[in-house]
Simulated scan of single mutants.
Amino acid sequence: MNAATEAPTSDTRPLVVGIGGTIGGPSSTERALAIALDAAGEQGFRTRLFGGADMAKLPLYDPKAAHRTAEEQDFVATVRRASALIIASPGYHGSISGVVKNALDLLEETARDTDRAYLADMPVGLIATAYGWQATGSTIAALRSIVHALRGWPTPFAAAINTQLTKFDDEGGASDPAVIEQLKLVGKQVARFAPLAGLAD
């Protein structure tokens, strides 16, 4: 299944949600995320991708807002249904991008959920892309810190992609087969750990 679309609501398979990309069209980050999501799909999960275009529709998070937009409601409701997440961010100035952080800030809406507050006990795969190695490491570290704050479990392996060396194409591939395998491992790990957390029933 193409990671950009979600299976029909009648599909009872557990859901892996991908969050990531950049504003302005499909990016290396979003393409990397799609590869990881497809790998989770191959393990029997349905998938939903919130890419750059989706995150661009989310207003800046206002914790005191009386109403949420349809896009905000859809995003939060989808994460609530998820058994696992994969988060991908470009490395901007040594950390995650604003649009990815804004989407994650919106998960404050789940703080008082009785079934699962935030990302409690949820496996979360991480991907960072940057034009050089230095920003990939600090971006992965920032993502791990955020996931811990949201009570989630970052999976053991995180994919750090140097886009100066690896190029992605419109067909869903990448110039380095090793990078593709790393991204697939991210997807396989979230699929493997979701049942252990009791979230894939």
Rank of each mutant, 00 (worst) to 15 (best):
F45R: 00
L183S: 04
T110W: 01
A3P: 09
G18C: 07
I96A: 07
I146K: 04
E108Y: 11
A120G: 10
A159K: 02
L185R: 05
A70D: 12
T166C: 13
S95Q: 14
E42K: 15
V186A: 03
S175W: 05
A194M: 00
I161D: 08
K101I: 06
R144T: 06
A65R: 12
I86D: 00
F168M: 07
S97N: 03
A117M: 10
A70Q: 08
D176Y: 13
S138M: 09
L150E: 06
A65K: 08
A70L: 04
R192W: 15
T29R: 03
T47R: 01
Q164D: 15
R144H: 12
P154S: 04
G125S: 09
A120P: 00
R116Y: 05
T114S: 14
G187C: 05
G51K: 02
H148G: 04
R80W: 06
S145L: 13
L58R: 04
E181Y: 05
L185I: 00
L143D: 04
I35C: 05
Q164F: 15
A36D: 02
L199M: 04
E6H: 10
D54K: 10
V17Y: 01
A149R: 09
P59I: 12
A34Q: 13
T69Y: 07
S97W: 07
A66C: 05
S95Y: 12
A128Y: 01
E171Y: 14
L85F: 13
S97K: 10
F75Y: 11
M55V: 06
G24A: 06
I127E: 06
A88P: 12
K57M: 10
R68M: 14
Y118K: 10
K167H: 12
Q73F: 11
R13C: 12
G20H: 05
V76G: 01
V17E: 02
E171M: 15
R81H: 14
D105Y: 09
Y61V: 08
P90K: 14
L49D: 00
V100N: 11
A88D: 05
L126H: 05
P156S: 08
F75N: 03
T47Q: 02
D113H: 11
A84G: 09
L150N: 04
T9C: 12
E109P: 01
A84V: 06
G91D: 07
A149E: 09
I180K: 10
K184Q: 15
G44A: 11
A174M: 01
L37K: 00
G44T: 13
Q134G: 14
R151P: 03
F193Q: 02
V17P: 00
G21W: 09
N102Y: 07
A3M: 01
A77I: 10
T139A: 06
D201W: 14
M55S: 03
L15V: 11
A3H: 02
D74V: 11
A82P: 07
M122S: 05
G187K: 00
A84Q: 00
L104D: 08
A149T: 13
A141N: 13
D11P: 05
A142Y: 07
V79I: 15
A36V: 01
L199I: 06
A197H: 04
